[in-house]
């Protein structure tokens, strides 16, 4: 198994722990990841709000490079995943749409046939690699850890390529298999507000408060996420939420690849768990017992 890796801009900075832990987990499982050479930003939700043809053509540049590698694409950021998938689908929608994008790409001596698949690492791990094979590699089970699985919005919608748009099970099944106790989490696909945290903070703070409340109510020790924007909204703004809403949340929010990495025997430092804003105490302790 090998994929063309599209990290996306967030994973180079605020989402660095996601990038590092994803690469390590894939390496440990023997799944190849080759970074797409000189990739550019997908434009996220912003560029298609300004100009669609430019936005799609810039995104297609990345797919054109991936096609030269002959590998399907792995995109961990929910927004990148959605935009790359959208462009793929648009180009498959009709020959005239494919031709139009290729006419633009030709200005940079590039072309794309729309033949690749765009995949999210969670889908690769659960649907293609398989939970049973992951279980065989587990070194440190997550027994007793109460996990709230937060999928966010853009990987489960709108393409419908995950198992369910309202109540997906991939994270639930994976972490149950790792020994964790996956708590009931009815807000698992609620939106975190994305970039509203910058443009309209008051709305985003409320959305994130509701998600954190649900995790607290369920007794979760940790929320796991699949998206850099959800992670930063839920974690780095927790103190601000507490101040504005008078709450006292102190809930660790980590990438699902970080927690999976712990189960696979990687250390908290390797997985950049020490770079998180809210530390993950119970797992740190469990790890030190194993390493002692």
């Amino acid at each position: 198994m090998e994929y063309a890796y599209y990290p996306g801009c967030s994973l180079e900075a605020t989402g660095r722990p996601y990038d590092v832990s994803l690469r390590l987990v894939f390496q440990r499982l023997g799944i190849g990841l080759k970074e797409i050479e000189d990739w550019n930003c997908c434009g996220a939700t912003s560029y298609i709000s300004m100009n669609k043809l430019t936005a799609y053509s810039l995104t297609a540049r990345n797919l054109a490079y991936a096609e030269r590698m002959g590998l399907d694409v792995c995109a961990p950021c929910s927004s990148c995943f959605t935009i790359l998938s959208k462009v793929n689908r648009h180009m498959r929608w009709g020959e005239e749409h494919k031709a139009q994008i290729n006419e633009v790409l030709a200005a940079a001596n590039l072309s794309y046939s729309a033949g690749l698949e765009v995949l999210h690492p969670l889908g690769i791990l659960v649907d293609f690699y398989g939970i049973e094979r992951i279980q065989e590699r587990v070194i440190c089970r997550l027994d007793g850890l109460k996990v709230a699985p937060y999928y966010g919005c853009q990987i489960v919608r709108p393409q419908g390529r995950f198992d369910d748009r309202e109540d997906p099970q991939q994270l639930d099944n994976l972490f149950n298999a790792l020994g964790a106790e996956v708590v009931p989490f009815p807000v698992k696909v609620r939106c975190c507000g994305g970039m509203l945290m910058t443009s309209y903070e008051e709305v985003a703070l409320k959305l994130n408060r509701d998600i954190l409340s649900a995790a607290q109510f369920a007794g979760a020790d940790v929320i796991i996420t699949t998206c850099p924007l959800c992670q930063i909204n839920l974690e780095a703004y927790q103190e601000r939420i507490n101040k504005v809403h008078g709450t006292e949340f102190r809930i660790p929010v980590v990438y699902f690849t970080q927690l999976l990495g712990l189960a696979l025997g990687l250390s908290p430092e390797e997985l950049k768990l020490d770079e998180m804003v809210v530390p993950l105490p119970s797992v740190d302790r469990r790890q030190s017992e194993v390493h002692a």
Binding site: C9, R16, D38, N40, T54, Q100, A106, M276, V277
Partner: peptide, 28 residues
């Protein structure tokens, strides 16, 4: 503090391609 804020711009090498794509798309 957590090295999660990039202080340097990650400018790509293919800016010429990016500009050509933008120019072409806008001309259409």
């Amino acid at each position: 503090k957590r090295k999660r804020l990039g202080l340097k711009p990650a400018r790509i090498h293919g800016m010429k391609e990016v500009r050509a794509i933008i120019k072409k798309a806008q001309s259409m």
